[in-house]
Design a protein around this nucleic acid. Structure first.
Length: 498
RNA sequence: GGCGGGGUAGCUCAGUUGGUCAGAGCGCACGGCUCAUAAUCGUGAGGUCACGGGUUCGAACCCCGUCCCCGCUACCA
């Protein structure tokens, strides 16, 4: 048994929740659910990042104060996570007092360590955007007729450059820390290019956490946002909780790799805190081979897809059709295809045919499985594969393995043809095996499709919930007791029109 | 320009340290079954593993070169 503190990034409230957010969050949720099945102590957090210029300006445009604005938009994330059955233990908002406490404490710690310095920052500044821009962006802005000037401002800087060697040592000592390896290489490559100090405060806005020793400044986005992970685990407000949960395992998208794999550990080093246990970086969902984006009009709202596929169908697709770590194609057609083949045809239909035959041949009473069923060894192998897959944070592999058991069971049924036989031991044996598989699959697939598996559980006559089972205790072959009333029901996952 | 990741069956993708690695799922074709959501089960089709060299007894996997695609290149989720 282990202790798992799992995090999603906190999402910027100026954005609208889309499937990219859902992708990270559903994956983290599934991992959290898996660890709960393992009997691990789990704390799973998500939340919203609420400070910064964009939010302040959006609030002004909507004629409300920033906090009111943030309340409204943060709620959109809460709502969508409720819709998707995200089992978070903590939803953190950076505008909460506990977060201010944590941020200020980290700032003081870094400062005491000599890593924060007031400097004059001079950079290219887009007047229209009220933001600093990179050299690469200048040409585009000028083409659009947006003036770019050189601006000078006093900012506090975090001395990231001091941590180059220590970061490299840390990576060296922990080769599996950042997964997959390709992402680790990217982080290493970035560090090896040489690290520059970065500015962590602004005087030009006040929607942020004040620098404790200089209240003209508020902390700037990343420095404040990353600290949410500490805040959530109790840092600065509940030391016992913090000691219990820290350090965290972070899941994140590749767009924010640098902040998490370079800035963040350096900040923790500076503050004298333990470094993350793991960083799992995933790729993008590509639509038509392109990154999803608002401008490309392929921003997709989770709610729209849930309407067509149901919560479980949507979750299953996110977990099964992309390999966590690399980019994957996202398409509606692929979703339909996956839904029909895996959920409707294989799993849903297995439940239908088994319950029907039990009704016809066993008077609706489910028989017990054979201890020496040919499926027993398959189940054992599958369990090992599923376990391994979740260890590697490879939900797609866990699903593939689980569905192998479903396929083998359909195959066994074809072989035995219980619907042709007279009621008796032969029929009982094969149907008992199939019911046992349904029981196992209900447990193994519960991180992905938590609603459907509860329905399976109920229909095959079991009490309680597969979500409350324990891997290693409840997944050895043969625990379906037999003698339970099995219910024939309507299709679990009605097929969708292609 | 620099750094990094890719180009494997019609589609989406797996391929650990080089030797049953040429695969899976979907789709397709043929056959079986008809308990089941026209679902399922079996069989199959032969993809120069981007291209050209090289190392090796042997490479999709190692090295060199070429052609494409993509990401990052710092304070902007």
């Amino acid at each position: 048994m282990t202790r798992q503190f799992l995090t999603t990034p906190i999402y910027y409230v100026n954005d609208v929740p889309h499937i990219g957010h859902a992708y990270t969050t559903v994956n983290t949720d599934a991992l959290a659910r898996w660890h709960r099945l393992k009997g691990d102590e789990v704390r799973f957090m998500t939340g919203t990042d609420e400070y910064g210029l964009k939010v302040q300006r959006s609030a002004e445009e909507n004629n409300v104060d920033p906090q009111t604005w943030a309340d409204q938009v943060s709620q959109r994330y809460v709502d969508v996570w409720d819709l998707l059955d995200i089992s978070y233990d903590d939803f953190i908002r950076t505008s909460e007092p506990r977060h201010h406490t944590a941020v200020q404490r980290v700032l003081e710690a870094c400062r005491a360590n000599g890593d924060i310095e007031l400097r004059s920052y001079e950079g290219l500044y887009s007047v229209a955007d009220e933001a600093y821009v990179s050299e690469a962006e200048v040409a585009e802005l000028e083409r659009l007729g947006r003036p770019v000037i050189t601006m000078r401002e006093d900012n506090y800087f975090f001395l990231l450059s001091k941590y180059e060697d220590r970061l490299l040592e840390w990576y060296e000592a922990n080769p599996t820390l950042v997964q997959p390896d390709s992402k680790r290489n990217e982080a290493l490559g970035f560090i090896k290019q040489g690290l520059k100090d970065f500015s962590i405060s602004r005087t030009s806005l006040d929607w942020g956490v004040p620098i404790p020793w200089d209240e003209d400044h508020v902390t700037y986005v990343w420095f404040d946002a990353l600290i949410n992970y500490l805040t959530s685990s109790g840092y600065g407000t509940d030391e016992a909780e913090f000691a219990k949960w820290w350090p965290a395992r972070h899941l994140l998208g590749k767009d924010i790799l640098r902040f998490h794999c370079v800035f963040w550990p350096a900040m923790l080093m500076s503050a004298g805190l333990e470094l993350p246990k793991s960083l799992n970086v995933h790729g993008y969902l590509l639509v038509g081979g392109e990154k999803m984006s608002k401008t490309r009009l392929n921003h997709i709202a989770p709610a729209d897809l849930v309407e067509d596929f149901g919560v479980d169908g949507f979750r299953y697709h996110l977990l099964r059709d992309q390999n966590f770590g690399s980019d994957g194609e996202f398409s509606y057609e692929a979703m339909v295809s996956r839904f029909n083949s895996d959920l409707a045809n294989n799993l849903g239909n297995l439940l239908s045919r088994v319950t029907t035959v039990v009704a016809k041949k066993c008077d609706g009473v489910g028989p017990a499985p054979r201890p020496d069923s040919p499926l027993a060894s398959v189940a054992g192998e599958v369990l090992a594969e599923v376990n391994d897959a979740w260890e590697r944070v490879a939900p797609a592999d866990a699903m593939k393995a689980t569905w192998r058991l479903v396929r083998e069971t359909n195959s066994l049924l074809e072989d035995a043809e219980p619907w042709k036989l007279e009621p008796g031991p032969e029929v009982d044996a094969v149907l008992g095996d199939a019911l046992e598989v349904l029981r196992l699959v209900a447990i193994l697939a519960s991180p992905a499709i938590p609603n459907a598996v509860q329905e399976i559980w109920r229909r095959i006559g079991l009490d309680g919930s597969p979500l409350d089972r324990r891997i290693d205790v409840d997944t050895s072959w043969g625990q379906y007791p037999g003698g339970l009333t099995v219910e024939k029901g309507s299709p679990l996952f009605p097929r969708l029109k292609p």
